[in-house]
Amino acid sequence: MTNWFISTSGKTRSGEPAPGKARVRAGATFAAKLTFDAVTKTYGERPAVDALSLEIAPGEVVCLLGPSGCGKTTLLRLAAGIERLTSGRILISDREVAGPARFVQPEDRSVGLMFQDFALFPHLSILENVAFGLKGLPREEARREALSILSRVGLERYADQYPHILSGGQQQRVALARAIVPRPAVMLMDEPFSGLDVQLRDAMQEETLALIRETRATCMIVTHHPEEAMRLGDRIAVMRAGRIVQTGRAEDLYNNPAALFVARLFSEINEVEVPVRAGQIATPIGRLSAPGLADGARATLCIRERSVELVPASGNGKDAGTALKGRIRSAKFLGDAVRYEVAVEGFDAPLNARTVSGPQLKEGSEVAVRIDPVAALVFPSNDDKTP
């Protein structure tokens, strides 16, 4: 894998640092705590961010995850000072930077901001773009700092060129260098990898995270890709309709989603509506607890596609009592997995199953279907099918 953040002046052809050449490192800064205290931002009568509270620890990377229009970018712009909040407070290291009677200008917040479209200045050279945030330094010192970070991202040879000659990935690296060179205490990134192809996106995610760790900046990354959030964030904050639905580590949100909305974000699931009786639901895989739901209410049984195990039927009754009978209705090859639609006894509608790619089961074949009840999730039913 190419390492974009190693100086090309000290690399072998394989991309590894040449013997005796030290890796160029970014300067460290003092990480800051970022606090949102009951923050609200309205446009007209519609709240884009609604009484939201969140605390990000010094040096922590938190990903804001949610569908388009849920308020993620608005919250980032409020933290940067590009937007003024309607009510609530924003604090950086317990210093109020936005509140009812206080507003600190963006340039005085020690915040770095990286936009989705990179926002490079077309009339400035690559070096001038990177040095743009160093106006407080003497010209030669600013030039040295900018060249150093360009070397760190492997683009110093383009210092005197202009952004239009660069590829999308190279422009992304310039935008990252420009945001990080002032050594901000807080780094804010608005879907920074959305315009990159898959292979480059994976490489840039790894290298961007490495650079953020080196600088020790507190970081908030906006994304609508769950896998990206799981890959990058120490914690994930799931947003919906201007509010935080759940925060936690990736494994916590995956294994213990607080709502059906969160479960849908992190895995492909089968949803089956079942009536509640005496705090339980009766399902083909057994009786499951439905705490907090009244008798007669409807619950949604969620079964992850990857939790549905398919085994060719033995035909000798060996599977009886340990599995449900099923029939393959369709199979779709997806590269590293196969997605099956399976008619399963006891279920009114077919279930989807996703298995690791291997010998493919044929359409129409009989299978034994095993579903671990422990892996099933139960939520109150609603008519909302988003995201």
Rank of each mutant, 00 (worst) to 15 (best):
Leu75Pro: 00
Thr300Trp: 02
Leu196Gly: 14
Thr215Pro: 07
Gly59Met: 02
Leu334Ile: 08
Leu134Ala: 11
Asp234Cys: 05
Gln116Glu: 15
Leu150Arg: 10
Arg77Ile: 00
Met1Val: 13
Gly335Thr: 09
Val369Asp: 09
Leu361Phe: 15
Thr29Glu: 10
Glu345Thr: 12
Gly168Pro: 07
Thr73Gly: 03
Leu200Val: 15
Val49Asn: 10
Arg339Met: 14
Leu211Gln: 04
Gly317Ser: 02
Leu76His: 03
Leu76Gly: 04
Gly15Phe: 06
Ser314Trp: 01
Ala313Lys: 01
Phe121Asn: 08
Arg143His: 10
Leu310Ser: 03
Glu271Gln: 15
Leu127Asp: 04
Cys219Asn: 05
Gly169Asn: 07
Ala80Met: 01
Glu251Leu: 12
Thr300Glu: 05
Pro106Thr: 09
Glu96Gln: 13
Gln172Asn: 02
Asp234Gly: 03
Thr40Gln: 07
Val308Ala: 10
Val198Met: 13
Thr223Asp: 05
Asn382Leu: 00
Leu52Arg: 06
Met1Lys: 09
Ala31Tyr: 02
Glu345Gly: 10
Ala375Phe: 01
Phe103Trp: 04
Arg243Pro: 00
Asp37Arg: 13
Glu191Arg: 10
Ser68Trp: 00
Leu85Ile: 10
Ala353Asn: 06
Gly286Asn: 09
Arg95Asn: 13
Gln171Asn: 07
Ala79Asp: 03
Val111Lys: 02
Ala119Ser: 10
Phe193Val: 04
Ala376Lys: 07
Gly364Trp: 14
Arg23Gly: 06
Ile328Ser: 02
Ala185Pro: 02
Ile281Leu: 12
Thr386Cys: 01
Gly321Pro: 05
Asp372Ser: 12
Leu34Glu: 11
Ile180Glu: 01
Ser9Pro: 00
Ser267Ile: 05
Gly317Ile: 04
Gly326Arg: 05
Glu60Trp: 08
